Simulated scan of single mutants.
Amino acid sequence: MSANSPAEVAAQYATDRNLRIRRETHERYGVGPDLEPAVDRLLALHGDEALLDVGTGPGNFPGRLGARGHRGRLVGVDLSPGMIEHATASHPGVEFVQASADALPFPDGTFDVLTARHMLYHVPNVPAALAEFARVLRPGGRFLAVTNASGYMSELWDVVAKVVPDESALAGLLKSRAGSAVFSELNGEALVREAFGNVHVEFLDNALVFPSPGPVLAYLESMTALQRLAAQDRTRVRAALGDALASRFGAGGWRVSKRMAFTRARKG
Rank of each mutant, 00 (worst) to 15 (best):
L51P: 03
R64E: 02
D53V: 07
N60K: 03
K267R: 13
P92G: 13
E155D: 07
V199H: 03
G179W: 04
L74D: 06
L19A: 15
V160E: 04
Y152S: 03
L186H: 12
G197A: 07
D102Q: 09
T25W: 10
L74M: 09
E24I: 00
V163M: 03
A89Q: 15
V54F: 02
M83F: 12
E189T: 08
P211L: 07
Q98N: 07
N60V: 11
D166E: 15
A190M: 08
G214P: 01
S154Y: 06
L74R: 02
E189V: 11
R41I: 04
E155C: 03
R20T: 15
D53F: 05
V163P: 01
G268I: 05
A207N: 08
H91L: 03
K175H: 12
R259L: 06
V237H: 02
A38K: 12
A231C: 04
E132T: 01
G109V: 03
R248Y: 00
A171E: 15
T25S: 12
T25I: 12
V126R: 00
R117T: 13
G59A: 08
Y219H: 11
I21A: 10
V201L: 09
V126P: 06
D34W: 07
L156A: 05
P33V: 01
R228S: 04
E167M: 11
G253C: 00
S5Y: 12
